[in-house]
Amino acid sequence: MNKQLSAGRLSLAIFFACAFLLPVVLAVWGSLGQVGDVAVPLAGRAGPDWQNYRTVFQTAQMVQLTANSLLVVILGVPLATFVASLAAFAITEQPQPTKRWLLIFAIITMLVPPSAVWLVRFWLFEQIGLLDTLGALIFPALAGGNSLFVLIYYWAWSRIPAELFEAARIDGAPFLTRWWRVGLPVVRPATAAVVLLSFTLFWGNFIEPVLFIYDPNKYTLPIGLQLLNQLDSSNRPLLLAGAVIAMIPAVLVFGVAQRWFLRGEWVDG
């Protein structure tokens, strides 16, 4: 199908796209300036100044912090996606009363404020020796990251006709085969969405490293940004360069993921 877009919808879409792009574009612009520059693009400028990006990496072991952050997402994101999708697929196959209780459990645990678990997680990680290690940041992936991810997979599967899975089950395919061969291929948009949201969660995680990590060699990039701010909070271009650096991997992941989840069956063809 190739539907025609109305002029009104198109102009509204362009308006909102520009509105959401604006802060990002301004930040990139600001990061290319020098201390004391007038901020707005109206002002004349000699040309982009890449010095800020070099300075960021020369300051406060930023290379090490970036590597730590990358390690956390490389382990955390696939693990969280794997656990969440397995759990959701198992939920879709449960008989009714069990299924309803599991969904209620997922919804309630999705509503628990993160601040309610800080104290006890601190104690827990201390007991099992994860305190002050990157493991404390990756460990939540073993629980699927967040119950919302399980629900996203569940919703995605709930729109697929049950006969599809029923047929595979009657053929005697084991659970993992059904999940991998029949289940996952029909919910690629959900996988992309969960990868993206869990990447956002792990990459941008600021509170947990503040709470659980003390060794400066194990800090992550978000902590690095705060350090930059503490070192010289008046150097705006430098801070913005740090912010843009932290943004780049997220934008790359998003570029790959959105091909699936924003063009899949969730949108109007």
């Binding site: 301004l26 941008g204 600021f206 978000p222 940004l225 843009v244 932290a246 943004m247 997220a250």
Partner: peptide, 10 residues
């Protein structure tokens, strides 16, 4: 998708 501290600094 911008990490929260980056968004705060922006």
């Amino acid at each position: 998708i911008i990490p929260p501290p980056a968004w705060a600094l922006i």
